[in-house]
Each structure stands twice: as structure tokens, then as C-alpha cells.
Design a protein around this nucleic acid. Sequence first.
DNA 1: TAGGCCATCTGGTCCT
DNA 2: AGGACCAGATGGCCTA
Length: 176
Amino acid sequence: MEELCYSFEEGDSTAECLLWEPADPDTQLENFLLECLAEPSWPGPGSAELDKCPVPPEPPGQPRQRRAANLRERRRMLSINAAFEELRGRVPTFPYERRLSKIDTLRLAIAYIALLGDILLSGCHPKAYVEQCLRSGARSPQWAAWNTSDLTARLSWVSTLEMLILHVINVSQEQI
DNA sequence: TAGGCCATCTGGTCCT
DNA sequence: AGGACCAGATGGCCTA
């Protein structure tokens, strides 16, 4: 999977990598099904081979057309879920938090996009801008759009973790 | 145990 | 006619 780690600094930092690195959700079954669907042997829409589909087991007496519609619907939902999974990997998440729900993913993505747009409009350094907003509650043009508890909690977490890391580095340097 | 989240099935509607 | 999309219903799983 493509790795997209947004970094406030030119150099990378542990805290930012932890925050923006895509989670590793349990999608083995989903991937397996997607692989099956992508295989040339997998029957296409309207194919007479639909009756041979291994997933799922066919209820006896179900009309072929209904089975085909069900299969198409499952494929459609799988593609939607794959898109959600990709989106989950591109919004800030805590490294230890559980998998975001679909609705949370959408809401967080909306807030995150608003924040990025706000940073662009400000012309400030991203890190300085976020820290200033978190400290002073500065009112920006789109503040209301991205000032959600979900997103600000994540941003605060990054700032706190980064401060801790810097503190540990300073202390260790003093002891040398 | 209630509530949230999710996958799946199903029927309806619209489009090609 | 068949496929895509959508929303409602249902049941399973998980967590507080």
C-alpha cells in the first residue's frame, strides 16, 4: 500500500509517522474476496458461470437472476469498503485506536480536508499554524469546519508526543 | 443487555 | 433486459 506520511517538518519525526501511517486493519477476508473477484475465472456480470461461484453458498431454489444481483451487490459493497479502507489510511489516526467506523472516517476526512485548506489559505508553516490554533483557539476562516473534537484531539496528541520526545532528547543530552 | 456497527439480502428505481 | 445504485430489513458481533 502506498504510504502517505504527512510531515510538519522537512525531516521526519517519530510522532508524525505514528500518527499518519495507515493503520493495518484486518482485511484479509475482504482482500481474498477482492482477489477472487479480480480473477479471470471469476464470472462477470450476467455470466452463465455465476452458478459456479464459490462465495457464498447458494440457497437452493433461488432464481439465477436474484443470485446474480446479490453477487453484484456484494462486489459493489466490496469496492465501497475498499475505498473506505484507503480513506482510513489517509486521515490522522492514533496508532493504538480501534478501526474507525465508516461515519467517523467520513467526518474526520471532512474536518481534515478543511484543516489542510485552512493551512494553505493562511500561508503559515503548517506546524506553527496548528500549534497556534490549538493554544489560542485562533479563529480562522474555516475554524468551525475542522475544529472537531476528533481532529483536534489527534492534533493535540501529536503536539504532546512531540514535546515529550524533545524533552527526552534534551534530558538525555544533558546527562551526556 | 442495549446500542453501535457491519454485511448481506431484497425490492424498487433509474439508466444504458 | 440487464446492470448500477439505493434504502430498508435482518441478524451477527462487539463493547460499555
